[in-house]
């Protein structure tokens, strides 16, 4: 009896007693943890050297993201396995026609590409043809609504690195900011912290497109009043800065407003990529070149052989030609 009472009593009275005994230590803890978070923030924002910590911690978050993904995955699976034969056939037909159309376009593109390479060799300037790409899928998790960020289901294990460009079928989407082992976070080109070097396709005018914080708008604040730019112009990546490979479509100019009182005109552009609709995205390795399988073998095989010779003659860097040679050898084998 006695033992029970003693055991039962502290339980009821404990919280109050403990609060009084712990009183000062709460404040100490507060200061410790506030200091710790401040240090974390400064390190994360100013010095950007928390990549490994973030990658490690993202392993804890990964299961949560998977749980969120689960209903979507299950419904996708059901949708795929329960769809009727007729619908599949229709889809197959439409995809086949689409592929045929694209193949025709690709033929033209391949010949243009090789012609471009030949011309560029005449000018002695090197040009990357195709880059190594990987298809990744968006994870259906929402991040901070005031930041334009997405999570893709590929990470460091797939050689993803921070700063890597991200495209969709229509244009540049953004770049990777944090790469975890299995997933990585990317920032979209419309985020207010993002800027991308672009070039007007028609005139070659180079400028920078800043994210506006609105998902369908990019701002081009550094265009002089007398510059040749008009609505409908296509903006492509210029390749300056070395982060985005050159030549990918970024946006189309929507409106140009000249204000004689201002030194720059106000230009607004709409991103080409479907930033809030795409489900599949392409990750690109700008340095690593591979020739596309669809390119015409004869042309593609001819031109890089010249490419191998020219650097030898000019006694340039010896490391690069073999890469081109192996890439060129690919189309010959099939």
């Amino acid at each position: 009896m006695k033992v029970r009472r003693i055991r039962a009593l502290p339980c009821k009275g404990c919280p109050i007693k403990l609060i009084f005994t712990q009183g000062p230590s709460i404040t100490t803890r507060l200061f410790v943890f506030v200091a710790l978070s401040t240090v974390l923030m400064v390190m994360d924002h100013k010095y950007d050297n928390l990549a490994s910590l973030r990658a490690g911690l993202s392993l804890i978050v990964y299961p949560l993201q998977q749980i969120i993904e689960l209903p979507g995955t299950v419904s996708d699976w059901f949708g795929e396995s329960l769809s009727t034969r007729r619908r599949l056939q229709e889809e197959n037909d439409s995809l086949r026609t689409q592929q045929l159309m694209q193949k025709v376009q690709m033929q033209k593109l391949a010949s243009l590409e090789s012609e471009n390479i030949r011309l560029r060799e005449l000018l002695d300037s090197s040009f990357e043809v195709g880059e190594k790409v990987l298809i990744a899928e968006l994870m259906s998790v929402n991040l901070d609504p005031y930041k334009h960020q997405i999570v893709v289901n590929k990470g460091e294990l797939h050689d993803i690195y921070p700063g890597q460009p991200l495209l969709d079928a229509k244009g540049v989407m953004g770049q990777i900011v944090h790469a975890g082992p299995y997933t990585s976070t990317a920032v979209l080109i419309t985020d207010t912290s993002h800027a991308i070097p672009v070039q007007v396709n028609r005139t070659g005018l180079r400028t920078i497109a800043l994210g506006s914080g609105t998902i369908n708008r990019l701002d081009l604040p550094y265009i002089p009043n007398n510059a040749d730019i008009r609505p409908g112009d296509l903006l492509i990546t210029s390749g300056l800065g070395g982060r985005f490979p050159p030549g990918y479509p970024v946006a189309t100019v929507q409106g140009v407003r000249h204000d004689p009182g201002q030194s720059f005109s106000q230009v607004v552009a709409a991103p080409m990529a479907e930033l809030n609709r795409s489900r599949e995205v392409l990750l690109v390795w700008p340095g690593v070149s591979t020739t596309l399988e669809l390119s015409v073998p004869a042309d593609a095989a001819n031109t890089p052989s010249i490419d191998v010779v020219t650097p030898d003659e000019t006694a340039g860097s010896g490391a690069e030609p073999p890469v081109d040679a192996s890439a060129a050898a690919e189309p010959e084998t099939p």
Partner: peptide, 26 residues
């Protein structure tokens, strides 16, 4: 549950929502 739990919960919020580490933690 107190300051320490709050800090760890905040750190996890920072991770899942993609804000800078320490913002929600603080």
């Amino acid at each position: 549950v107190g300051v320490i739990t709050g800090w760890f919960a905040g750190l996890l919020v920072d991770l899942v929502t993609g804000t800078i580490l320490g913002q929600h933690a603080l």
